[in-house]
Design a protein around this nucleic acid. Structure first.
Lengths: 225, 225
DNA sequence: TCCTCAATCAGTAAAATCCGCATCCCCTTG
DNA sequence: CAAGGGGATGCGGATTTTACTGATTGAGGA
């Protein structure tokens, strides 16, 4: 369990860190708004404890930023700014809990436990589909009727192009640019090789889908003959 | 959104119900411990608001009962019994939030919003499981068919990632971030070493589970060959 | 028919990973 | 405060996987 502690009072922060570490958590401390932004956007934490008053950046702005960047980590706002209005603003701003200073350390720990015991979903698997073919963008995995095939990096980049544009003719240049970058310095013929690899995989998996050649232009993902 | 309101003060309960309904929730009220048990065990609610003081049944006992019956609905305890000790007992008893009376109705609504906007909390997951493998997050202990293996700190952090996301491919840098922190200044290759350690442990324990390599991406916990 | 583009595939270069070892660091113990 | 031990780290050779090249064969279009 890894917790990010965002608190400008360095002394308090260290003390709190000790307490949390004693309770068995990994704790990272940051003291400034600028650092906070960087760390908070790392998708590695199970919980963030956020001070409302940060030099350089308002806590709520940071919270909003975090949520806008699809970081779903639970956030506990712990702060001296503690009117009912502020609590409401904090909770509606995306906080999962709000506790006013001064607080009892044991209560804080209890609230941390309550927040942390939910499942930590790391990321939803994005999956593209065409016919009987499924392709998981995250894990580079191709799947037909439960049979699976792991793709290498290049194969995966190429397959992603096709799955995002099924039944569309994709020019060789376009594909090449997407897989090897705009200034790829490898032989153009390499693309053929990877088309070949993908076709082999599709055949092995007995997929309905296949890659058709459009002579002089490029390729297209479509229903195989 | 359906909310169960458990509150012995009938007048307060009705008032609260009105407020919640005005905010767009479906609300069911119960006034007695006996009714509360029946309703709380229906797995149809998105949130329960629970008074600590119930005639016939203590709120915390009810909470325990709810959790023992695998009801994972978020619970907000709202009560006049409001010392730090009580809060801690409530939160550790399975509550997701705890607010003392008298409270501001707007704050209550804000806390309700915060609770319902995320997936339900679960029983404190003392033990994660996958196949024949059990992992105790607290004690860093791995267990297969009664055979035990104590993990070191780094091993434990790594194993926790896998057990929380079994059969998901986890990227190298994700794992690295969770084990060594976002700015870990150690050699990246260390991750290999710890994967190696975990594999050795899994083999020693003769577990069905194994860690597969996803070349160029990362690793995945899955059934061993 | 001739010419161009594509398909296939083997062989090699490069990269990522595995895995053991030596060292360092820190905590505990005597 | 020195010794011992476990864990953490860095290194590097062996191994596996992927990436790339180029030669050969096949298919289309003018």
């Amino acid at each position: 369990m890894r917790i990010l502690l965002i608190e400008d009072d360095q002394q308090l922060c260290e003390a709190l860190k000790l307490q949390l570490e004693h309770a068995g958590y990994q704790v990272d401390c940051v003291y400034h708004g600028a650092d906070a932004v960087y760390y908070a956007l790392q998708p590695v934490y199970d919980l963030m404890i956020l001070d409302r008053m940060l030099p350089g950046l308002d806590g709520l702005s940071l919270l909003r930023l975090i949520r806008e960047n699809q970081i779903q980590t639970p956030v506990l706002v712990a702060t001296a700014v503690d009117s009912v209005q502020e609590r409401i603003a904090g909770l509606d701003g995306g906080a999962d809990d709000y506790i006013g200073k001064p607080y009892d350390i044991e209560e804080l720990l209890a609230r941390v436990r309550a927040l942390v015991r939910r499942p930590a979903a790391i990321e939803p698997a994005k999956c593209l589909q065409y016919k009987d073919l499924e392709y998981d963008v995250q894990s580079h995995e191709l799947c037909v009727h439960g049979k699976r095939q792991q793709l290498s990096r290049r194969e995966a980049l190429l397959m992603e192009c096709f799955m995002q544009n099924p039944e569309k003719t994709l020019a060789r240049n376009l594909l090449f640019g997407r897989v090897w970058g705009p200034d790829g310095l490898v032989e153009d013929g390499n693309l053929d090789t990877y088309i070949y690899y993908l076709r082999k995989h599709l055949k092995t998996l007995h997929s309905e889908a296949g890659i058709a050649t459009v002579h002089g232009l490029g390729y297209r993902l479509e229903k195989a003959l």
